[in-house]
Simulated assay, not measured.
Amino acid sequence: MTKKINKAFVEKWAGRYDPMVDAPVLRDVHPAVHDRGYFTKAEGEAVMKWKSNRTLPLFQENAEDDVEAITTMALGGPDRLAHRVLRLLRGVGNPVASAFLTVADPTRFTVVDFRAIRALQQHGEQVADDPYYREYVDLCASIARRCETDLRTLDRALWQYDKATNGK
């Protein structure tokens, strides 16, 4: 059996993650969204460029007021529904919805994508190929506590590990 994710793994791989990859959205978009309680269309586009530039043209078809209304509902409602509500936006699938939530509150949410899932699976952590988001966050929060870290650092470690060991 493969060794489970531990503190040394997180420290090693998170330390190799380029902080400039997510710095613009966490430094510039997060504070405004956190204070206001919703994303503007421009802020949504910044998240799209960070997470999934290929679906940006679809996202740009959303009306500004729809982006604001849907993200207000998602961020103001129960955590268990936030991810599903965000998927009402055109161009926003599972990974992108999780990126929106992570930018809004990286202490409560994390990004779900194929790299993180593959890294978890390769280390014996029980996660489905397409997990229900709330269960995925709960699993990652449990691992983060076990490794004495936060969700964002854990995600950086998982992403960097997969990128370095599996490439594309």
Rank of each mutant, 00 (worst) to 15 (best):
L101Q: 10
Q126S: 14
G91N: 03
A82E: 07
D66F: 09
D66V: 12
R115K: 11
T149L: 09
L120P: 06
A119D: 03
I143A: 02
V112F: 02
V127R: 07
Q122G: 07
V127Q: 02
D113I: 06
D65W: 10
T72A: 14
A97Y: 06
T72D: 09
D129I: 05
V67Q: 05
I70E: 05
L139G: 04
T102D: 06
T71H: 01
I117V: 15
V111E: 01
D79Y: 08
R108Q: 13
M73L: 14
V111L: 01
G124E: 10
T149D: 01
F109C: 00
A99D: 12
H123W: 03
V96R: 03
T72G: 07
A82T: 08
F109R: 04
D113S: 00
Q122T: 00
A82K: 04
L86S: 05
P95I: 07
F114A: 02
D150R: 06
V127A: 02
L75M: 07
R146D: 14
T153W: 06
S142E: 11
R152M: 13
D150M: 03
A74T: 09
G93N: 12
D155R: 00
R108I: 06
P131E: 11
D138N: 12
V112W: 01
E125W: 01
D155Q: 04
L81N: 12
R152T: 10
